[in-house]
Nucleic acid binder design. Structure first.
Length: 203
DNA sequence: CGAATGATCGGCT
DNA sequence: GCCGATCATTCGA
């Protein structure tokens, strides 16, 4: 059972709820006929209008953040610290700038290629723990920003493989690296799968 | 046009 | 635990 997540999954209102539901789903890429994938084990929600930690806070719209205002089901990829490509999933209706940062995955499909992309000799959590690491393993780069995750033939998409993560297995905590965001920094919008060794470190 | 900065990572101490 | 890497983006002059 491998169902590609439909547009209706992404266009719902509640970005925090969607961030929870993304745990246990699979993030898949296929570039040059080479497929790689992993199970999402950590996410963070960013809610545009009222979330100071979000790039689109106060509906701030720039060339970079424009894609966040598109309909849910698009990729928002940007460069962080000049080095790291961070992958986000745009959610919500058009002109509602919500997004979810994928922070860690459990590598599943074509681990060999992921190791090669990361220049690692053997399998370890370092392969895909952390938002900058998993994009490198999956071959996602800033140039992929704006891609549809639901269009036929798109090289990036998400799958439901029938694995449910129960509510008590979701750990909610404050988001990472957003201390500048005042009280928004206290919101428990980082979600991890309890007991997974593939998440980024607890803070 | 110049300068500051960041939703991070990995190597070194 | 600390610190440097490295550059697109943003904002102010």
């Amino acid at each position: 059972m491998m169902e590609k997540l439909p547009k209706t999954f992404y266009t719902r209102e509640d970005v925090v709820q969607i961030a929870r539901e993304l745990l246990g789903k699979y993030l898949v890429t296929e570039f040059d006929g080479q497929r790689t994938a992993g199970k999402i084990v950590e996410t963070e929600a960013y809610r545009g209008p009222d979330d100071k930690a979000c790039h689109a806070w106060m509906n701030r719209r720039t060339h970079r953040t424009g894609i966040m205002f598109a309909e849910g089901g698009h990729a928002y990829v940007y460069l962080c610290y000049g080095i790291h490509h961070l992958f986000n999933i745009v959610t919500g209706k058009k002109d509602m700038p919500h997004a979810i940062l994928v922070r860690a995955i459990e590598p599943t499909d074509n681990v060999e290629l992921m190791l090669e992309r990361r220049n690692l000799a053997k399998l370890a959590p370092r392969l895909t723990a952390g938002p900058g690491s998993l994009t490198q393993a999956l071959g996602i780069r800033t140039q992929h920003t704006g891609l549809s995750l639901v269009a036929t033939g798109s090289p990036i998409w998400l799958e439901d493989r029938g694995e449910e993560v129960s509510e008590e297995d979701i750990i909610a905590s404050p988001r990472v690296g957003v201390d500048y965001a005042g009280e928004c920094a206290l919101w428990d919008w980082r979600f991890r799968v309890r007991g997974s060794r593939w998440t980024s470190p607890a803070k």
